[in-house]
């Protein structure tokens, strides 16, 4: 499944990042690489973006970004 489907409070492991662009680079540089655990910490009041914990930092991603990230629970 993709990261945007991950429920609040749950942790999954990144299996891959789709898309071949600078967007993918940015996600990689944030430490979102295959094998990294990622947790849905909380959504914003309007549901998008969502804050995720990855490598001990909390980072907000918009839905389109989360949809690029494949995860496995």
């Amino acid at each position: 499944m993709t990261l945007d489907k991950l429920k609040m409070g749950r942790t999954a492991v990144v299996t891959g990042v789709r898309n071949q662009s600078t967007e993918r680079r940015r996600l990689y540089d944030l430490g979102i690489t295959p094998g990294t655990p990622i947790e849905n910490v909380m959504p914003s009041p309007l549901g998008d973006p969502i804050a995720y914990r990855v490598r001990s930092a909390v980072i907000a991603l918009r839905r389109e970004q989360a949809q690029l990230i494949d995860v496995e629970e």
Binding site: R26, L30, I59, A60, E64
Partner: peptide, 9 residues
């Protein structure tokens, strides 16, 4: 365009 925002502790 998208961006990522850190919520610092």
């Amino acid at each position: 365009s998208s961006f990522s925002l850190e919520l610092p502790p």
